[in-house]
């Protein structure tokens, strides 16, 4: 019988009471020894008394197990719920809060940096446009100045040129008038050499005739 064969080894030091309960429920004797089990029973550390119930189904052990399970589980529950878990939970929450706060600070810093970059770029653009305006203005001023000076210079030059032209004309006219006289004198002299004296008036008429 399997139950009794293993029951030989299922020995406990204080099992009189277990046997009592078991015998009462099963009404089965426990002295039917398996011969092979008997030979080994002598080597057992605790060799007297035995239960013929599969230990997990032995109702005699239930009260003790239930009591100590209740005690130890209640202790565990109290230790966990009052001490350990709030501590661990608070650490995790604290870390999460720190991480969140750091992330928020980093985000704020980034936004600040972005704002600084934006304002810098705005200032740069303003300065650029201002510089361009100044450059345009000064160029316009210079051009206007230059144009005015050039027109003034041109005007003086033009007057000088016209003056010079007038002078040249008068000089030319005077020179041309002198040319007639010189020609007449030269002709009088040449004619005088050839034919004697000639009146100045006739010579002039002849020159005018030749010229004419």
């Amino acid at each position: 019988m399997v139950t009794q064969a293993y029951a030989q080894e299922a020995v406990t030091p204080t099992e009189e009471n277990l046997d009592h309960a078991v015998d009462a429920t099963h009404g089965e004797g426990v002295d039917a020894h398996d011969p092979t089990a008997d030979t080994h029973a002598t080597t057992e550390a605790h060799g007297e008394g035995h239960s013929d119930v599969f230990p997990p189904f032995d109702p005699a052990t239930f009260p003790s197990q239930l009591l100590w399970l209740a005690i130890s589980f209640a202790a565990l529950y109290l230790l966990m719920s009052k001490v350990a878990l709030p501590k661990v939970g608070s650490i995790i929450e604290k870390r999460q809060a720190t991480i969140d706060a750091d992330l928020q600070a980093a985000d704020a810093d980034r936004q600040k940096t972005d704002a600084a970059i934006a304002s810098y770029e705005k200032a740069l653009a303003e300065a650029k446009s201002k510089a361009q305006a100044i450059a345009t203005q000064s160029r316009d001023a210079m051009q206007a100045d230059l144009a005015a000076k050039r027109s003034a210079a041109e005007a003086t030059l033009a007057t000088k040129v016209s003056e010079a032209e007038a002078r040249i004309t008068t000089t030319k006219n005077a020179a041309l008038a002198h040319v007639d006289e010189i020609a007449a004198e030269t002709a009088q002299a040449v004619v005088g050499q050839f034919v004697g004296d000639v009146s100045a008036d006739s010579v002039r008429a002849a020159v005018a005739k030749v010229k004419g």
Binding site: E9, A10, H46, F54, P55, Q65
Partner: peptide
């Protein structure tokens, strides 16, 4: 089965 035996 021996491993499941409960003793005082």
């Amino acid at each position: 089965i021996h491993q499941f035996v409960i003793y005082d």
